[in-house]
Amino acid sequence: MTLVKAGLVVLDCAEPEKLSLFYRELLGGEQTGASANLVEIRGADGIRLAFRRDVNATSPSWPRPENSLQAHLVFLVEDMDEAERRVVGLGGRPTDTKDPAGPYEERGYADPAGHSFTLRLVPITAPKQG
């Protein structure tokens, strides 16, 4: 029997209501819970995120090379340019300006509170035939 049924990533921020709206819009999701200091959402694909109030929150400093990334989110997308327009339209900002190395096309961003996340292109595969 599985003891843990589900998990969620919690981001600390000064304004959880405002940041949860950014991610609800980006993920096509809905708010699933809220209290004075915590807002939880579920994206259309089932991803669960929460945003905890920290009145002393400061934006992460990544991508400065002297600091580690610590943690960030990766969202899989089928249309990178459309996803980028959506992120920027919602108040996010690009952080990676160089061509990424590796087998995947990825682009880095920061949400309105400064948390880093990555959009990764998912190759569309044709259905098997025969």
Rank of each mutant, 00 (worst) to 15 (best):
P63C: 09
W62M: 03
K18Y: 05
W62C: 06
R120E: 01
R52N: 12
V4S: 01
L49K: 07
L90S: 03
A83Q: 04
L11E: 05
M80T: 11
D111K: 08
Q70K: 10
L119C: 10
R64Y: 08
R85D: 09
V88M: 02
K98T: 15
P60K: 11
A6R: 01
P63Y: 11
A50C: 10
V10C: 14
A83R: 02
S68N: 07
K5P: 00
E84R: 07
A71H: 08
A101K: 05
R93E: 04
L76R: 05
R52T: 09
E66H: 08
V10Q: 14
R48H: 13
N37W: 08
C13K: 12
P94I: 10
I47G: 02
G102I: 08
P103A: 08
A44I: 10
E15I: 15
G130Y: 01
L3F: 03
E105F: 14
L27I: 08
D96S: 15
P65D: 15
A14L: 02
K18I: 04
A36E: 10
E66C: 09
Y104Q: 10
K128I: 14
S59L: 12
A101W: 02
G130N: 07
E30C: 01
L76C: 09
Q129H: 02
R86Y: 00
P60A: 07
L21V: 15
P63W: 09
G29Q: 09
L21D: 14
A34F: 05
H115E: 01
R53W: 03
L26I: 15
I41C: 01
A110H: 13
G114A: 12
R64C: 05
G130H: 01
R52A: 13
Y109V: 13
S68K: 08
E106W: 08
G28Q: 00
P63R: 01
V88D: 00
P127S: 08
C13D: 02
Q129I: 15
E25Y: 10
A6G: 09
V77P: 01
P94T: 13
V39Q: 03
D96F: 12
R107M: 04
F117P: 08
D99F: 05
Y109I: 10
S35V: 07
T2N: 02
Y104M: 11
P123L: 14
T95P: 03
F22N: 07
D45L: 11
G92M: 00
V4C: 04
C13L: 04
T32F: 03
G29A: 02
L21M: 12
A71I: 13
E82M: 12
E25Q: 10
P127V: 13
G28I: 12
D54G: 09
G102K: 05
E15H: 10
L121H: 14
H72I: 13
A71S: 07
P127N: 05
T32E: 00
D111R: 13
E17W: 11
G91E: 00
E84C: 10
D54V: 15
M80S: 10
L11C: 00
